[in-house]
């Protein structure tokens, strides 16, 4: 009698034959829709704030803060992860998704305490983003300062 035996490549072929793939086109369109709507909403916020007489700079800062607040609140209400399942990158990439990435572990690790739970774990996704952003920004500044381009 033969044994159950396959190389990873052979098995992979078999999996591709029997496993439903990701609906890539649908995912693409949904991500476009959700991401586009969040950005469009952000732009509308900026324009409304400017109409109210706020300078352009401050309006975009305040709009960002409002979006972060909304992302955080929707996460707290348990709605943002539902949007995430529909929108994929469309809800992860906007700044609201960054807020979601901070709030979700912050809430969840409360059970391990305020300091070592919430305080430490709230940066599991946001931490890398800030670290690499700051290091890259610093290096670019350094190169620009040295080579003056």
């Amino acid at each position: 009698m033969k044994n159950v035996d396959k190389t990873p490549d052979e098995y992979n072929q078999m999996i591709n034959q029997f496993r439903p793939g990701k609906p890539k086109i649908v995912n693409f369109l949904q991500a476009y829709l959700v991401g586009g709507l969040i950005c469009g909403f952000g732009q509308a916020l900026i324009e409304i704030l400017q109409l109210l007489g706020m300078p352009a700079d401050e309006a975009s800062s305040l709009a960002t803060i409002i979006l972060i607040f909304l992302g955080a609140l929707l996460t707290g209400l348990g709605i943002y992860d539902e949007i995430g399942q529909f929108g994929g990158a469309g809800s992860a990439v906007p700044i609201t998704g960054f807020a979601n990435a901070i709030v979700s572990p912050a809430m969840e690790f409360k059970s391990e305490g305020w300091i070592l739970g919430t305080g430490a774990k709230m940066y599991i996704v946001a931490g890398p983003v800030l670290t690499y952003g700051m290091v890259t920004a610093f290096l670019i500044g350094l190169i620009k300062t040295i080579f003056k381009f």
Binding site: K24, N27, F28, L29, Q30, A31, Y32, L33, V34, G35, G36, L37, I38, C39, G40, G42, G87, G88, A89, G90, A92, V93, P94
Partner: peptide, 11 residues
């Protein structure tokens, strides 16, 4: 533009 960035992220 924002939608496009997100959709490329999805890809």
């Amino acid at each position: 533009v924002g939608g496009l960035i997100c959709a490329l992220g999805q890809v």
